[in-house]
Design a protein around this nucleic acid. Structure first.
Lengths: 214, 214
DNA sequence: CGAAGAATTGAGGTTAATCAACGAGGGTGG
DNA sequence: CCACCCTCGTTGATTAACCTCAATTCTTCG
């Protein structure tokens, strides 16, 4: 936890920086909601636990995203780092006196809500294969952040375990594994080691996601 | 922050009022995102359509809620009135010059996101009975907006068809109907006519939702 | 009354969950 | 270094939940 690496939003100084190793709980359910967090680098996932152990991961957040924003006194979900992550922390009390941030926050919340809408469609109406295809395509999309149209091929690294992916997609880890195997057998994806790079045929994956992308 | 029957936010005048009859499309997918809407009274649902006709409803909004907020140029979902609804319309261009609204908007978006998180848990991890129980309980909760603790009983009117509920809960209309019948047989709910009032035993419904409520 | 839309119920099929076995790394300690 | 263990992933067999298809009833409205 180093101080004094200046962190900026919109060119303005702000935020106490923090470094987080992978698989670290940043916010736990029930924690008092004293601050808002912004991701500088790395990835964070948000989830909830049902009393009987069922878990649902509902957001995967990357650089620029904010989390810990809530209308309540306490956090109602868990925020956990996926990778090595750098975040900046903004005390709520300070934020309230900086309305200039509201623009940024509104913008990020808008993006977040759109993603949640798409995720609801996935959870409510897509088959297992469609869910996994969508997941892989989004993964490739987010890592390759490409300007001039997407290439037909991409190399991606899957940063989550099968079990985490399952909790994200509302499936079991076995079903996720079978979907990966199916896509591999179809030649749409290929990999030797599950933690190594995965080659993805983006153009063949698109039609399997159950979504139109223009 | 909760006010009012007239078309004001935070005491400031704003918004062109509009009356909308039930089952009316207010925003269609692809419409240019020129304005933001606030519900004065009534209820609105937001949904998306997959190319093959599958539909997912992901938000049910009541008085005070805003919709039409998006980071994009065009709307990517459908907003449709459920009941007779009065809304106020705020041109985006005007909003941008009224940062005093940002507080309100952030607050509403926070609430919206929490609801979407819960809904993701429902869609990803709950059984049919749990989904329908949760739906009914939320319905009762929202219509009875009770201060001094919830009563054990409540009368509610279900404002959606079985098909709409199904699209909201990620089920088929038959499964929804069966879940209603099951709850009726258990004596947790009772009704004579499906469009009439429904008696709900809130205390017996809670344990069926798969969630802890404190 | 008749027609159309909504809800209910039943029978049978399909998808994904569950239960279970096995294999491939990656640490740890002898 | 190797044996052991532990986690993660894959695959197979079976089960259960939900979907699909279909028939019937209820409700409203012209």
């Amino acid at each position: 936890m180093e101080l004094n690496t200046s962190t900026h939003i919109d060119g303005k100084v702000a935020g106490r920086p923090m470094e987080v190793p992978p698989r670290t709980v940043i916010i736990d359910e029930g924690d008092p909601a004293r601050a808002v967090y912004r991701i500088q680098s790395g990835h964070v996932m948000l989830s909830k636990l049902l009393p009987d152990g069922r878990r649902q991961i509902f957001e995967l957040l990357g650089p620029g995203s904010i989390f810990g924003v809530t209308p309540h006194e306490r956090h109602d979900s868990v925020a956990e780092s996926l990778t090595d992550t750098r975040i900046s922390i903004f005390e709520r009390s300070i934020l309230e006196r900086m309305p200039s941030f509201d623009n940024y926050i509104v913008h990020r919340l808008e993006i977040q809500i759109c993603a949640l809408h798409d995720h609801a469609v996935l959870l409510g109406r897509k088959t297992a294969t469609e869910r996994v295809s969508t997941y892989i395509l989004n993964l490739a999309h987010s890592t390759h952040e490409n300007e001039n149209g997407p290439p037909p091929q991409a190399l991606v690294i899957v940063p989550m375990t099968r079990s985490e992916i399952a909790d994200y997609l509302g499936l079991t880890l076995e079903t996720v594994s079978r979907a990966f195997s199916r896509l591999k057998r179809l030649g749409v994806i290929s990999y030797e080691r599950h933690d190594g790079p995965m080659r993805v045929a983006l153009d063949r994956l698109g039609p399997l996601t159950g979504t139109y992308w223009t």
